[in-house]
Write a protein that binds this DNA or RNA. Structure first.
Lengths: 221, 221
DNA sequence: GACAGGACTGAACAGCTGTTCAGTCACCGA
DNA sequence: TCGGTGACTGAACAGCTGTTCAGTCCTGTC
């Protein structure tokens, strides 16, 4: 079926315009197969559009990638704003949970984080800042324990969260479900395990204190 | 410089044979750029060999991948055996720490886990089994706390560990160093943060108990 | 000393890659 | 009515992809 020029009162509904359809198709394909695994023609086909049009709008494949990064970042900021309006559900896990709706963006983000790039680096910085702020509020509410280094802990929690999402294929295999692919009703195995780890801890209190304090002292010097 | 046929008493030292050099080059390149990011000619160049020879030995690019997976898995098993001989340093983090020497293999593994495939799935199953066993011993020694579901916790700890390693670029940016790229002497920021999270926990004991018990009850029914 | 077999190569190939080009169509202001 | 502008296309291109082919060289066996 050939493309319908977006005339005034044409036959079919106007839908999103081609440029947006291309971005949507690219984000969906990228998040499934990574950047190298998707060709411009794949994207074009996904958007019901010719390959040269992708170049026409975005200049090159790299250009498309850049715009997708920006678009994803903006979606994250919007989602953050909405979360702030909604209520006071903090913690990194709740952050992910809140993202259930725009899971495609999250999946894209995870791919982008591996590939790297200025846009995602800046976004990651933002996410860390936000996490630190949310954590501080949650500490005030006695939901989260204070840490000797709030920023580092926030960084590692984010990396662990995103990282485990990256391996959602394995998670699904080993846990039976994964927040990346299944509806929230089936997140039980994941959530209970996360709660276990982050509420009860893993190491016995005294087990590694010596090692820990050694490292801390070494870093202070 | 052309290839020297591996004659009897030739000029240069015999080194490893071509087949092994190809595997080594492939694993190194794959772990840096992923599977799609590396061409057969890249691998051939890295092993000082012609591209058709790679095909000759491994049949196809997919064949090479498969052999690399098997090889990496074997290296992990060897490393495990050596760890068992060495001593009693358990915990997932110590497992990674022990792998400092064969970091290339670990990096390859991380790429393979994203890409998926039978070989890595089987390896991952093995790693989970091992982690469960190690954890049980560490619980006996009062180094690690028991968990309501040892296997699930082991799975999530592995996924978090591997996952955060996948994002080593971000870790390096945000923490200043990463076990994936830096020598053990600079692992301080990573290790102290991990100890903090896994020793002290993150959530306050009562904060999410209701949610947790709700999920657990739902799963039992 | 003939010969099979295997490691190894350069040259060549078909197919796919991102991109360019020339041209069509619809819209819009003069 | 004209001409400019921009969305959009099929055809074509150069470059790279994995792979094939024919042939060279070495090694071991009878």
């Amino acid at each position: 079926m050939a493309y319908q020029y977006g005339g005034t009162g044409n036959t079919s509904p106007p839908e999103r315009d081609a440029k947006q359809r291309i971005i949507d198709a690219a984000i969906e394909l990228y998040s499934d197969h990574g950047f190298n695994g998707v060709t411009i023609k794949d994207v074009a086909a996904g958007a019901n559009v010719s390959a040269p049009l992708v170049i026409h709008h975005f200049g090159s494949k790299a250009g498309l990638r850049k715009i997708c990064d920006k678009y994803a970042a903006q979606r994250v900021y919007e989602s953050k704003a909405r979360a702030i309006e909604m209520g006071k559900q903090f913690t990194p896990e709740q952050m992910l949970l809140h993202s259930a709706k725009n899971r495609p963006i999250l999946r894209y983000l995870v791919q982008a984080l591996i590939a790297g790039g200025e846009e995602v680096d800046a976004l990651m910085d933002q996410l860390v800042d936000d996490a630190v702020q949310y954590t501080a509020e949650a500490i005030d509410q006695e939901l989260i324990k204070p840490s000797p280094d709030e920023r580092r802990r926030a960084v590692m929690l984010l990396l662990q969260g995103f990282g485990s999402m990256m391996l959602h294929r394995q998670m699904k295999r080993l846990l039976g479900s994964s927040p990346m692919t299944d509806p929230p009703a089936e997140w039980g195995p994941y959530l209970t395990t996360i709660f276990d780890i982050y509420t009860n801890g893993v190491f016995e209190p005294e087990a590694y204190r010596g090692l820990y304090e050694g490292l801390a002292a070494q870093e202070d010097s």
